[in-house]
Design a protein around this nucleic acid. Structure first.
Lengths: 150, 150
DNA sequence: CTTTGTGCAAAGGCTTTGCATGCTT
DNA sequence: AAGCATGCAAAGCCTTTGCACAAAG
């Protein structure tokens, strides 16, 4: 489904990787700030809009590039929303999950019991490391059950 | 992030809903057959390609429309893949999850312990019903740890 | 016969990329 | 001064939609 046919880049790293340090720019600082500020999912477009609104001129492409890099470096987590956008969230702070109403979008934060242990165990059994997990519950909230749409 | 500003359609259903029965067509049967056949995630494009390959002429738009309907009716589940496509899976059969290598895409099926109970409990506490859950683990597999790409 | 489903093509929306310029180091 | 980061615009992709024709009930 996902990485079907994903090319397995067989690179035999030779010398010391260049490891260019990331340059500190106003834009990157702004994105980083807004991401660490709140522990909620934000799409690239939302981040862009927010920055523009608060008087931080920034290009949409830059937001995309920055968020992608931050996600690759592990600074933030990335998931796909049901409507097909990428949503990012700072992952350093408390890792929690969501209970989402598929009708009206209402969201409730939930904290699952320690199944973090289980995830690590299972991962180890299969030789996997650097584990991240995504867990979301979708349902219909009380209001929408009372007054269903369509 | 997701349903931000999603219009809450306040429809007060009056009489008996028309409830037009879905017409049985060759295309719909083909899509339904391919989805119930295997218990794996498939994107719309994959379903389309598969059907074309096995000599079942069908339009891409039809595949999208059919899968969307089947998802709405609850026949199949829909999730978003990391690369931004919609993946569908028949949801009647055994519900399982995946451990995915974020490097090469290798996938291992996993079956979490009974936390289904927990999901229902939490959902009930918040007045949510008709719960579905999505759980995926992302990590780096043994091979990719041995020979890292990039 | 009426209504829904299908196909094709065009449009829409999110994301990525090419290239010249500006800013960081 | 050298090189990455940024902006803008164009291109790419997946998905949805409009419209005419075919098929189902």
């Amino acid at each position: 489904m996902m990485a079907t046919g994903m090319p397995r880049t067989e690179i035999t790293m030779t010398s010391t990787e260049p490891k260019t340090p990331i340059r500190r720019t106003r834009q990157r600082a702004a994105v980083s700030a807004i991401m660490t500020a709140l522990d909620e999912f934000r799409t690239a477009q939302e981040v862009h809009a927010t920055l523009r609104d608060q008087g931080d001129p920034i290009g949409l492409a830059t937001v995309y590039r920055t968020l992608t890099q931050m996600a690759e470096s592990g600074e933030i987590d990335c998931v796909r929303t049901p409507d097909g956008q990428s949503a990012y969230r700072s992952c350093s702070s408390g890792h929690h999950h969501h209970l989402i109403c598929r009708e009206c979008g209402r969201t409730v934060e939930i904290t699952p019991p320690s199944f973090e242990d289980w995830t690590n165990t299972v991962a180890a059994e299969h030789g996997f490391t650097e584990i991240n997990h995504e867990l979301e519950l979708f349902g219909r909230c009380a209001d929408c059950t009372a007054a269903p749409a369509s």
